[in-house]
């Protein structure tokens, strides 16, 4: 392959992988908008949602991997996640309403542990294949560069979700209410905004979004209870770099991090594959110093 082809291939792969990070980052932004906190259990909830989808899909249409079963499974997973997110907010996080921010964050970490354990208990820790309804390994060739169908579907889905969320936040009453709640919930309530309801909706939407990302990821690799643990690091980095309140920022940052990381691994000899994971940390560090509210955000990160 010529050097230019290699470069383009890196970009294309980075865009697809980065989309997954971006989707989880979007979910984190959404929860942050609704509740002002960072949900460390976001990835765990996503994995739980996709297991539920797989199980329901297989129950409805027996015979692993029938296209209809997979599609129904995805629909079921999204609905189940909406409910799961709402329930977690209402019955777990609501109890910490008056607690310190740090306590709430620790609560979400506890939630992650709990959910991962629960998933392992029910479905086991062995990787489960997740059928992909677009035909997993097919790809297009353009010159030297090969683009998998999976990459195209993933990238398109995430960009579409990002656009929808951006419009939701900046252009709708629902989004305005969410941002008011994130900013100052008691004051938002004085304006008649139903804080509890909006928070449940925000958690539900975020969980559904995370589940879509988890399904896309699992259909490329496989499903395991800790599928998203490593990805959470990238998603958090993307959120910090892009801005906690900016859907576009989160996705662009996720794509940027992934591409920069793979370029650094390929072209800077002393980084290579062993050290490439430091790239997101360096980026986070630099952004926090020059622009604490994130490249696209309006709100400063006060503490993480």
């Amino acid at each position: 392959m010529n050097p230019f082809g290699t470069f383009i291939q890196l970009l294309v792969d980075g865009l697809a992988q980065g989309s997954i990070y971006g989707a989880l980052a979007l979910a984190i932004v959404l929860v942050n908008q609704a509740t002002g906190l960072v949900n460390f259990a976001q990835g765990g909830m996503a994995v739980l949602g996709s297991y539920i989808g797989l199980t329901i899909g297989n129950l409805l249409i027996p015979g692993v991997g029938s296209t209809l079963g997979v599609v129904l499974g995805i629909v079921a997973a999204v609905i189940a996640s909406l409910a799961l997110g709402g329930v977690v907010e209402r019955f777990v996080m609501r109890r910490f309403e008056r607690a310190e921010e740090d306590t709430k964050v620790v609560a979400t970490i506890g939630l992650l542990t709990l959910i991962t354990g629960l998933v392992g208990l029910i479905w086991g820790f062995n990787p489960t294949p997740y059928p992909f309804f677009f035909g997993g390994s097919e790809s297009l060739r353009i010159g030297d560069v090969s683009i998998s169908v999976w990459s195209i579907v993933t990238f398109t889905t995430i960009v579409a979700l990002m656009v929808v969320l951006q419009i939701l936040f900046r252009g709708t009453k629902f989004g305005l209410g969410m941002r008011a709640v994130a900013d100052n919930a008691p004051s938002a309530a004085l304006a008649g905004i139903r804080v509890g309801g909006l928070r449940m909706a925000g958690w539900g939407l975020a969980a559904a979004l995370g589940t879509v990302a988890a399904i896309l990821l699992a259909s490329k690799s496989q499903l395991t209870p800790n599928n998203f643990d490593g990805i959470l690091v990238y998603a958090l980095a993307a959120v910090v770099i892009g801005g906690l309140d900016s859907p576009i920022g989160a996705v662009v940052a996720a794509l940027g991090i992934t591409i920069l990381e793979s370029l650094a691994a390929a072209y800077i000899p002393w980084i290579g594959h062993d050290l490439k994971v430091v790239v997101p940390f360096v980026l986070v560090f630099v952004v926090l110093i020059i622009r604490p509210q994130g490249l696209f955000g309006r709100r400063a990160v006060v503490r993480v």
């Binding site: 305005l176 004085l190 304006a191």
Partner: peptide, 29 residues
């Protein structure tokens, strides 16, 4: 609030990360 009582709290309660116009629209929620 929905019954028609609007409370301007001590310390104002303005939403710092929202623009002036957005704050007004929150009032009209």
């Amino acid at each position: 609030a929905s019954l028609g009582i609007a409370h301007v709290p001590e310390g104002r309660g303005t939403l710092g990360n929202l623009t002036v116009r957005e704050n007004l629209m929150v009032g009209a929620y």
